[in-house]
Design a protein around this nucleic acid. Structure first.
Length: 325
RNA sequence: GGACGGGUGGGUGAGUGGCUAAAACCAGCAGACUGUAAAUCUGCCGCUCCUUGCGGGCUACGAAGGUUCGAAUCCUUCCCCGUCCA
């Protein structure tokens, strides 16, 4: 192994909007390059919510291990920070075992948290939050923003009055860290150590992506999604649990409640998924150093291109470690 | 055939003489986002012109006429839609 620098291992990231074929491409690359898939998706982390979160069923994994799915119960809170910690553990393990990690990333924040790190900010505090939410109830949503403006004017300027979620997080940081958000953000952010990363981005034509989203939604229903949701409801999982906020689960739960027809649910799911895909595209556009490929990760030509990119990268990587070692 | 109610921008739907290119919401488009992120939030959203301004022009509230300085808003006729009576 290389003597001078701490050992580096390659890491492949496959990113793109939902339904762009990340999973398929990830598996294809893992098969070709002795890799394993590491999922970077905030919803697949949750147990029992399978079809709607597009988890790859074991039967379609081609024997490639998939990591970082099914980590928590539906009522458990999971955050970007925890994702980072879990992912680092998995990555280090793969490195030790000499297998190539192929990260399939749909959740931009988690990817960024892993690759660039998070500031040394306090974790969420549920009781502080419930207290803040309570005062917001009594004194209006703007009250919290005014409070933030008093204790951290710079942060308040950057956050919209109506963005209660971000206002609360800013207040939380300010109070718990006893520093402004700006100060906190300037400290402790540490990029991922020990890996050389290359990113492949899937960028199918927008119209085609939307069409595929629509088709896939119907396929998921055909695959028993509704029955899955019924079972989850039957299991007694609270309708307020976070995963019932995931696209599709809320609509299907509404249908089960008799609030909307199945057709209505399906078209709402398709719409929400399209909007989500757009947000992902917006996020990933700013991701640095991505090898963008036009098309879906299921297309042979795209897979070939991606394999070429990865092959080049691994070759360069090999040469670099050889010459340094 | 008669009696009501209604026809508003891609959709729902406010607006009953000027402050209205027309509320609000949705959809759409663009964007932000360092610990709930499949979340949360922001901007734009008739067409067009330029010396990009609380700028100019044009078109627009079923259709056509009319009243008025001025009409989505009032009047007339016509065409549709809904409900009820025959």
């Amino acid at each position: 192994m290389s003597g001078s620098s701490p050992s580096l291992a390659p890491l492949i990231v496959v990113l793109g909007p939902t339904a762009s074929g990340k999973s398929a491409l990830g598996i294809a690359l893992a098969r070709r390059f002795n890799g394993e898939v590491v999922v970077c998706d905030s919803t697949q982390v949750c147990r029992y919510f399978d079809i709607g979160t597009a988890k790859v069923p074991a039967s379609e994994q081609h024997g490639i291990p998939h990591h970082l799915t099914d980590l928590v119960e539906p009522d458990e809170v999971f955050t970007a920070g925890e994702y980072r910690r879990c992912a680092i553990t998995v990555l280090d393990d793969l490195k030790r075992r000499g297998r190539l990690p192929v990260l399939t990333a749909g959740t931009g924040l988690y990817l960024r948290a892993l690759l660039e790190g998070l500031a040394d900010a306090p974790e969420r505090s549920e009781e502080l939050r419930s207290r803040l939410r309570e005062t917001a109830q009594h004194r209006g949503a703007e009250y919290l923003h005014r409070l933030l403006a008093k204790i951290d004017p710079d942060a308040a300027k950057k956050i919209a009055v109506r963005d209660a979620q971000k206002v609360i997080r800013a207040i939380e940081i300010r109070m718990l860290a006893r520093q402004t958000v700006g100060e906190v953000h300037r400290t402790g952010r540490e990029a991922l150590q020990g890996f050389h990363v290359t990113k492949v981005g899937l960028s199918p034509n927008r119209k085609a992506l939307y069409a595929h989203i629509e088709a896939r939604t119907r396929e998921m229903i055909a695959a028993g999604w509704l029955e899955e949701v019924r079972a989850l409801v039957g299991k007694g999982i609270s309708p307020d649990a976070k995963p019932f906020q995931f696209i599709g689960y809320r609509e299907l739960a509404d249908h089960i409640d008799g609030k909307i027809s199945l057709e209505e649910a399906v078209s709402r799911i398709q719409q929400a998924t399209r909007q989500f895909a757009k947000r992902q595209i917006t996020w990933f556009r700013r991701e640095p150093d991505v090898h963008w490929l036009e098309g879906f990760g299921t297309e042979p030509a795209v897979i070939a291109n991606a394999a070429a990119v990865v092959g080049d990268f691994l070759g360069q990587f090999q040469r670099a470690t050889d010459s340094s070692g």
